[in-house]
Design a protein around this nucleic acid. Sequence first.
DNA 1: TATTGTTATACTCTATAACTATA
DNA 2: TATAGTTATAGAGTATAACAATA
Lengths: 139, 139
Amino acid sequence: MGPELGLRLTYLLKHALLEIEQLHRERLAPLGIGGRELAVLLFLAGREPGSQQQAAEGLGVDRTTMVALLDGLETKGLLSRRVDPDDRRRNVLEVTAAGRKTLRRGIRASDAAERQLLSGLDETEAAQLRALLGRLAGQ
Amino acid sequence: MGPELGLRLTYLLKHALLEIEQLHRERLAPLGIGGRELAVLLFLAGREPGSQQQAAEGLGVDRTTMVALLDGLETKGLLSRRVDPDDRRRNVLEVTAAGRKTLRRGIRASDAAERQLLSGLDETEAAQLRALLGRLAGQ
DNA sequence: TATTGTTATACTCTATAACTATA
DNA sequence: TATAGTTATAGAGTATAACAATA
């Protein structure tokens, strides 16, 4: 574990994150969404309709942050909020048909961004990196 | 490459970065510096005295961002600015004796933070992760 | 004219506190 | 009283534009 800045884990992780975020910006721009919006669609599409609070917890963002994120997605017609009849304080979130279409295109764009970041690694190495990072995340 | 959010590379990288940043905050707090200040000290200590502009480029931050960072370090007595007599537009940056001491303690704190992040991996796996991330950064 | 450091300003992402409507 | 969504506000971190001093 050398002292050099370029060898510090924080530096290496930040470098990789900044690069993959830039690749996502480029590839998601034609779809009119950002990486955080893709993450919301990805999170919502895979489970039963839930509340904003549940989505915020699942995504690890504050519920106040979620409001603006959902405003954007709703304005673009990619998801809908409707009041939960069983608890009128809650909004039930549902991805629209347009949202599902954008999500499918977004996943392909994200896959391409990941492949580009990992283009210097072979299949085995890419899988190793993914597995090791997954274990840091406790998966 | 599955569609699930928790398997996306961006999610995994961000998770690891947030965690190691938190570990650094905890371990650097007693030293009175933040992770970005440690990075500046680390960058400056390893090379010939240089200008703010050179430091900004080397660290990958804007030169306007560097000003406030250096203000903090100078106030704490960890580095000094002096006008370059050969080009009076430039400030020559030098880490003080106190700065070098804080740097040594900071490196130990950062090493400990890295070990904690990687505590679920064995030595070989930790080295693999470091090497793979290094290759993404073009090293 | 161009460059270095600086300041003012703005934009993104994030969180805290307070409001409202519901429970 | 407590909870879900919302708004206002503020704090990091970042960048752009413009300024003074110097080249």
